[in-house]
Design a protein around this nucleic acid. Sequence first.
DNA 1: GTCCTCCCCCAAAGCGCTTTGGGTCGTGCG
DNA 2: CGCACGACCCAAAGCGCTTTGGGGGAGGAC
Lengths: 346, 346
Amino acid sequence: MNLKQLSSILGLSQTTVSRALNGYKDVSEATRLRVQAAAKAHDYRPNTRAKSLATGRAMAIGHVVPRISTHAMVNPIFADFIAGAGETYSDAGYEMVISVVDAEDEVRAYRSIKARGSVDGVIVSAPRMNDPRIALLNDIGLPFAVHGRASGLDLPYSWLDVNNRRAFRRATEFLLDLGHRRIALINGIEALDFAHRRRLGYEEALRDRGLAADPGLTFQDEMTEGYGFRAARQLLGDADPPTAFLVSSIICTLGVRRAIDEAGLTIGRDVSVVTHDDQLSYLRNDGEVPVFTATRSSAREAGQRLARMLLDRLDTPDAPVAQQLLEAELIIGRSTGPAPDRMKSR
Amino acid sequence: MNLKQLSSILGLSQTTVSRALNGYKDVSEATRLRVQAAAKAHDYRPNTRAKSLATGRAMAIGHVVPRISTHAMVNPIFADFIAGAGETYSDAGYEMVISVVDAEDEVRAYRSIKARGSVDGVIVSAPRMNDPRIALLNDIGLPFAVHGRASGLDLPYSWLDVNNRRAFRRATEFLLDLGHRRIALINGIEALDFAHRRRLGYEEALRDRGLAADPGLTFQDEMTEGYGFRAARQLLGDADPPTAFLVSSIICTLGVRRAIDEAGLTIGRDVSVVTHDDQLSYLRNDGEVPVFTATRSSAREAGQRLARMLLDRLDTPDAPVAQQLLEAELIIGRSTGPAPDRMKSR
DNA sequence: GTCCTCCCCCAAAGCGCTTTGGGTCGTGCG
DNA sequence: CGCACGACCCAAAGCGCTTTGGGGGAGGAC
């Protein structure tokens, strides 16, 4: 069923039917109702491709996910984030298109997306420091919004970020208040902006107490369970092991917990752990008393909000860029306790 | 830069330029090269919307993810699966569009997808027993391929599945061989086909040894960490607790491990655990000796293969439906050992 | 009666591409 | 020489929609 058929059934012109369905003024209430009824009866939906060709709007938002040819990684946070964004899109009548592109030529990919015109805008994920994509997108005029920020750029652009620096600063202070002095940081890859900011927060808190960050206590890598395990195992085998771990992802934290268990230590008593918790739906860290003390911020909600932000931008392209900084809550769970050293020294 | 502009620059007709770029016969090698060079120089890409309107092919595949309004869940397996599929699409010049739809009216959603014509086919995930979507898609003539199967239907359709029954049968036999008699099954929701089949495999293995499945030992739910924890905690508190756990997802297994740890038991000695392992990229269960004994099958690879299957189907719609049954490997890790009861009884 | 407004409605152009159905050469063959 | 046939190329139609730019008719004001 297409417009032509529908309008001939109704004995009206395509113009009138189109206007009736799209809520234009120039059509009597009576015919509008008649058209709507017929559309529903025949289950008519305008063909997306034709519609977007005519209007110039694709009614779709792109998400570009880089494919690292060497090491195939799918961030589980991505799933929750996507789900949140997807809900917003679907409510607004938009579709979500995901392009998997070789990380090597992301630039080409964005140009191509623009030229092919299959989306109205894109969400940029996992910005690096001085991320070149932002300038590029500004250049080619493809609307976008960034999940995170890019330190070092002073271009204006729309973003939504968690206050990673403050969150990790608070988490570190919390551990310091408990008497911990050797605090390990199991971070994400620090070329990524969020990880960089988390380290800044960690270092600030230490510095404020007159402590220097021990480079031997900080790790950075792709935030897998295995990485968490290996880093923690190594640290716990040291001559002067940390009494607390600050971990960038709950996935990673699972590995840290495994290493602690294997070392025969008890979490929350012998060793404290604070994690960042993106509230992944399959890995909830909640309940009356959560398992892990955590800086908490919902990836799904971030997806919803950022999608909204981009859609608003498409509606009013001339509005100033929007920026949202979300604060992570510090949730006290059962994985933290007073530093054991301190108790001995009493 | 569009076709019109490009062809006027070249002093050729749009027809010729189009044919040159699309590899048609009717154009001399000289002009073809000239056209290709110009296209590259001006970074020309045909507009997707116009192209698909003209050809009738959207060059996109849809994935429909249901949104459960009450309980928002994002299966982390989905992320890996999607990533695999996305790679295949991108290599084939296809895009992936994800529609988040209210679970209540999935039927309407599929009809709408067909009518709007924004994709050439869809992947159906998480089929239930007698899943109505399959007949529906056959009816409306939207090409599709299913990740899993739907017990109870004898329609022909394309699918790719893991041999869940055999995998869980083998896993159960493995535990039985170790002397375990009380084996808990921490399953997914058994209205979903894969979970149903896993239970069948579990029951078959028990029956073959003359054992009846104890209903008190089997659980089913959304496969979260929390569910695994609660189920295992409850079971371990029983008067006659199981000596082994068979778990449907590694996420769930993390919760089971937590419960076992909290009960002061040692995994692989006091309690054995076998899990299904989808080889999630952030939760690898590998290394020389994996942590968990597992039935292993890659979600990402499934995505790649199923995508390929659907694309092939689009190319040759009249070919018979394709079906692939993958076998899961049984990987022996450190989470299993002889049943403790048996040792006592020596 | 005439003119002007509204109110509804429509024909046709246009979005950027593919594809049909010719055209125009030049060449080889009888 | 004339004809058939390839090899190249092109104009125009068409994909299904939106939108421009009217146009007819009813009603009100003069």
